[in-house]
Nucleic acid binder design. Structure first.
Length: 240
DNA sequence: TGAAGGCGAGGCCATCTGTT
DNA sequence: AACAGATGGCCTCGCCTTCA
């Protein structure tokens, strides 16, 4: 078993299935992929909510994104058609809890405009394209960088693409999986050593986040970390 | 022990600086 | 001139330290 898979097994054993990415179907938040439904079976509304969530979660705790999604939902504007019509200041007020509300309002406004103008508000029209093309389209949207786009492609579009975030970088470099901060190199590493599976990539990313929050913090808490037996950083430290 | 304050983390864009 | 890389700013949360 290669190291990437071994680490996955260790994390899964320790933390269990994470059940990630909450949505607001009928106003209720629940983890999508804990259900048996494949993400590609999601409705356009559910996919849209994932896109909004992915944008709002930039540099923000998920709990605050949920608050913003609840506000948008309560106001009855959580659709591309409604969001494109409300004022910038109203949108900013509704998503305030997610932080960076002015920047994010601007990004969200532009995104829904593009979505309606080019795709009539139908995300399936983007997700029916090949991965490379869909990724290029989304990256062209203002405020959508690689991490945000890949989250959308994985969680909403059910494309088998590995999401790289700060935790992934930190953990991978510490453990010794790779020695780079480069987004595409890290993504390529995971995609070449793991089975190309939406479910696996989804779970793996969630497990890394859990590890990053609990043990592999900026200041690592190595004692009790489920990866310390395989961790270059820990083994190096314990020699000193 | 709890409150208050300081500071780092986080993703992206715009701008500046250096290199070819 | 074109391109690449570095840096600052946006905004809030949560961790850590200090102090009463």
């Amino acid at each position: 078993m290669n190291k990437a898979n071994k680490i996955y097994q260790n994390l899964l054993k320790r933390f269990g299935h994470q059940g990630w990415w909450p949505l607001t179907p009928k106003g209720k938040f629940y983890p999508v992929y804990q259900t048996e439904a494949r993400t590609s079976d999601l409705s356009n509304q559910e996919m849209f909510e994932i896109c909004v969530g992915a944008l709002l979660t930039q540099n923000t705790a998920w709990s605050n994104v949920v608050k913003a999604l609840v506000e948008l939902n309560k106001a009855g504007v959580l659709t591309p058609q409604k969001l494109v019509k409300i004022s910038f200041s109203r949108m900013a007020g509704l998503i305030r809890s997610s932080g960076y509300f002015r920047q994010k309002s601007k990004r969200l406004k532009i995104f829904v405009k593009v979505l309606i103008k080019r795709y009539q508000g139908d995300l399936n029209k983007i997700f029916s394209k090949p991965l490379v093309e869909a990724r290029k389209e989304l990256l062209a949207c203002y405020g959508f960088g690689p991490e945000t786009v890949d989250s959308i492609l994985l969680y909403a579009g059910a494309y088998p693409i590995f999401v790289v975030d700060a935790y992934t970088r930190r953990i991978g470099n510490r453990v010794g999986l790779f020695h780079t901060e480069d987004y595409s190199q890290i993504q390529e590493y995971f995609q070449s050593y793991l089975k190309k599976s939406v479910k696996l990539f989804n779970e793996y990313h969630a497990l890394l986040v859990q590890l990053g929050k609990e043990f592999c913090r900026t200041k690592p808490l190595c004692e009790g970390c489920p990866l310390n037996k395989d961790c270059a950083y820990y083994l190096g430290e314990s020699l000193n």
